[in-house]
């Protein structure tokens, strides 16, 4: 896939859709294309975060370990999804483990590039907030379900 195709793809993603075309191109150019094999771990919970990922193709699974040593699946993400942005903006370690469920193609966006994009584009920032809010709602719901099940 060439840079031009990646730019096309980036435009489909709400966070990046409204930013300046030159910025979109720079975003792609400065990012790495990374392919993961099924089962390969992208990052572990607790790792320090240096990048976020955009899923180009395939499915990734987000899990968190419980005290009992099990792994709860908190999210499954597919095409056009953004992975790993919480740790970047929260300056906290990774909150979940990301694993490739299928063969997974991603665009790895370095932390400083993503911060640059958000800083320059209010639309992208709002979109980011929307995603984070959705994640929070999701997790809260999950916790409620888990809580009622164990009780």
């Amino acid at each position: 896939m060439t840079l031009e195709q990646e730019v096309e793809l980036i435009r489909q993603i709400p966070i990046f859709s409204k930013i300046d075309p030159a910025m979109q191109k720079l975003l792609c150019f400065s990012s790495d294309r990374l392919t993961y094999e099924p089962g390969q771990v992208m990052f572990h919970v607790g790792d320090t975060a240096d990048a976020a990922y955009v899923v180009i193709d395939g499915i990734a699974e987000m899990t968190v370990p419980t005290t009992a040593g099990e792994h709860i699946v908190v999210n499954t993400l597919g095409r056009n999804a953004v992975i790993g942005e919480i740790a970047i903006f929260g300056s906290v370690p990774r909150t979940a483990t990301a694993t490739a469920k299928t063969r997974l193609e991603t665009l790895r966006i370095a932390k400083d590039m993503l911060v640059e994009v958000i800083r320059k584009n209010p639309d992208a920032a709002i979109e980011m907030i929307r995603i984070l809010a959705e994640r929070l709602a999701n997790t809260t719901a999950l916790l409620q379900r888990e809580g009622s099940r164990t009780r």
């Binding site: 300046d20 030159a22 910025m23 191109k25 720079l26 150019f29 400065s30 400083d112 590039m113």
Partner: peptide, 19 residues
């Protein structure tokens, strides 16, 4: 391409060095 990508960045931005 380089002019298009990097003209908007301030001088001394680390991306020049890296990319």
């Amino acid at each position: 391409t380089m002019v298009e990508l990097f003209s908007g960045l301030p001088p001394g931005h680390e991306f020049f060095e890296r990319f």
